[in-house]
């Protein structure tokens, strides 16, 4: 590799876009050529400088409010007229209701209705699950080793999540991620079932909470339960039977005394 080649390829190398052979050639060149090595160093610094969060322009609130289904508590006033309109919309046309679901806070109320005692947490968990499937959003820590994943959460959450590898049961652990549900930081563990992804969210619960439920929505199954002071929500597009099996495996493996199974 000549310095001329390296001048262009050093950027692809910095961006981790070279294949293994090219990377090896680049590493060798950087070892041999101090000028190129220094240039590599400078561009590395430039990349770090550009990573400062101050440069990222987040959407202003006005724009966000226009497009986000607001949390009910945060927008009590603007929510009320549309909440009144929601039942009417359902009665008139499903399509109109769809538009409301998209753009108004009434969608949470709507989900509550059709969920039959369901919970906004379920809708949030599904949204979060779908979001996690987008490129590069699935995992913050990639590891199949529970002893790597669990310590990774240390200092990032105000509780210690239960992390279990269930490879033996056919649900290999593949990593973890920080996420937010019901307005708080939660631990998300990612498991696989064949080619499907299972997200398991957990966060502390009131000591008394023992509710458990299973719901299906938009082709996703959501199983919630609480035990030993923790809320758990498992979400996946695997069959309900498979997800139930996963939940039982997690409960058993977690050493729950009576392995309370969902109804």
């Amino acid at each position: 590799m000549t310095c001329d080649d390296a001048r262009l390829l050093v950027h692809a190398y910095l961006d981790n876009e070279l294949d293994a052979a090219q990377s090896a050639t680049m590493i060798k060149h950087l070892r041999d050529c101090t000028a190129c090595a220094a240039s590599y160093d400078v561009y590395g610094r430039l990349r770090k400088a550009l990573a400062q969060p101050g440069l990222y322009r987040r959407a202003p609130d006005a724009l966000r409010e226009r497009w986000s289904p607001a949390q009910p508590a945060a927008s009590a006033a603007p929510a009320s007229p549309r909440r009144r309109r929601a039942p009417l919309a359902y009665a008139m046309a499903a399509g109109f209701a769809g538009a409301l679901l998209l753009t108004s806070p009434a969608w949470i109320a709507g989900l509550r209705q059709d969920g039959g005692g369901g919970n906004p947490v379920v809708a949030e968990a599904i949204s979060s699950h779908i979001r996690s499937l987008q490129a590069q959003h699935l995992m913050d820590v990639v590891s199949t080793d529970q002893h790597t994943v669990k310590p990774w959460f240390e200092g990032k959450l105000d509780f210690s999540p239960r992390v279990k590898d269930l490879t033996g049961e056919g649900f290999p652990l593949i990593g973890g991620r920080l996420d937010a549900i019901a307005g708080r930081s939660v631990a998300a563990l990612i498991y696989k079932r064949h080619l499907h992804v299972i997200n398991l969210y957990q966060w502390p619960a009131d000591a008394s909470a023992t509710a458990s439920s299973e719901e299906q929505r938009h082709g996703y199954t959501v199983i919630r339960w609480a035990t030993e002071g923790m809320h758990y929500v498992a979400v996946s597009d695997v069959s309900a039977g498979d997800l139930k099996q996963f939940v039982l495996a997690f409960q058993n493996d977690a050493g729950t005394p009576t392995a309370r199974s969902p109804p």
Binding site: P69, G98, A99, Q134
Partner: peptide
């Protein structure tokens, strides 16, 4: 924001839920 609900030409709740889950997180 009250005007927005008339915009979607062919809405249905699943499509809306998908849009909300996939596209809205990319607003930033």
């Amino acid at each position: 924001p009250a005007d927005l609900h008339v915009i979607s030409p062919n809405p249905d709740s699943v499509r809306s839920a998908r849009f909300e889950a996939l596209v809205l997180p990319c607003l930033d």
